[in-house]
């Protein structure tokens, strides 16, 4: 161990110049050797100014036990950022922290969203047969909407609020698109959807498109809220057709939201009321969102 230190001229570490042993170096090799022998006989070897390095250039030091403890303690303290995530193990903090994480992800998702970036569209050959497009509902498969009397109620920051008939919504150019419907559970289907561009209808009724949200209430008491950027996206539809036929009762007749840039649970069916607003009601952000799913739900 002790033979090496005299042969290490290339130190990267300053601050070792002032160690007591520095003087020894100027002594002749013979003197030094005898001095070392004395050391070895009479007392433990004094800490040398180690000028060695590990294979990856690791700094090597000879230290006293006390110094080592102090160094270790100092380095241990620097790991506080790691211990901080232990907060997730504290029951009281866990839920608020996870909600912060979810909100941060939603914020980032909003930043990643391109207002004019289109979701992928597909050829007719890629569309799944209608029979294999799942019916998904949270309560009942058919809330028994009276299709003859149905109207869409429009509220909030619009110049022309009121009740609109399906024909009025269908008066706009029909957009038909083959897009992917993605469920938060992990499955997806490519379907064929037809409807009116939400942005066109909203502009026609004089909606404040500078507002932040569109709130949606459904006949089956499902509810949703969507950020305005997504509502105005060119692929966001008030959808009244699937596979060229009027929406059937299982898929949300007579009118549903269809947004290829959002997860399935955002695509509310059996629309009853839409409201343009700047403020979301605390416990009315969305049926699943209020139970802990992502509010943004963007793809």
């Amino acid at each position: 161990m002790s033979e090496e230190h005299s042969e290490e001229p290339q130190s990267k570490h300053e601050g070792e110049q002032d160690t007591p042993q520095e003087g020894d170096r100027q002594a002749s090799p013979a003197e030094e050797a005898s001095a070392r022998e004395e050391d070895a006989q009479e007392q433990p070897v004094a800490p040398r100014a180690a000028r060695r390095a590990g294979p990856a250039g690791e700094e090597v030091r000879d230290v006293t036990p006390r110094e080592r403890k102090r160094m270790n303690r100092r380095e241990l303290l620097k790991l506080v950022p790691v211990i901080a995530i232990g907060a997730f193990a504290i029951p009281k903090l866990q839920e608020p922290l996870l909600m912060q994480g979810l909100h941060f992800s939603d914020w980032a998702s909003g930043k990643l969203f391109g207002r004019h970036r289109l979701a992928q569209t597909f050829r007719n050959n890629d569309v799944v047969p209608f029979q294999r497009f799942p019916y998904n509902y949270y309560d009942v498969a058919d809330p028994e909407v009276d299709l003859d009397k149905w109207t869409l109620t429009v509220e909030g920051r619009v110049q022309r609020p009121g009740d609109y008939k399906l024909e009025q919504i269908q008066a706009f150019p029909k957009v038909v698109q083959n897009t992917r419907h993605v469920c938060v559970e992990g499955w997806d289907v490519i379907g064929n959807f037809g409807g009116t561009r939400a942005s066109e209808f909203l502009r026609w009724i004089g909606a404040d498109t500078g507002a932040r949200f569109l709130e949606v209430e459904c006949v089956d008491e499902y509810y949703e809220s969507i950020d305005m950027a997504t509502v105005l996206h060119p692929q966001t539809l008030f959808c009244y057709e699937m596979y060229g036929n009027p929406l059937d009762r299982g898929h949300g007749a007579p009118l549903r939201l269809q947004m290829p840039t959002k997860l399935g649970y955002k695509q509310a069916k059996y629309l009853d009321t839409i409201r343009v607003t700047n403020v979301l009601q605390a416990d009315k952000r969305g049926y699943w969102e209020d139970q802990g799913y992502s509010w943004y739900g963007g793809l």
Binding site: E16, P47, V60, V63, T64, P65, E67
Partner: peptide, 29 residues
Amino acid sequence: MATNASAIDSKNAAPITVAYEHPWVVRVA
């Protein structure tokens, strides 16, 4: 690095060789 205190210490205890193997960034990461 070697202070007076450690020099005194060293009279009573053998020095320990230590190498700084894992920098802070690597450990935290």
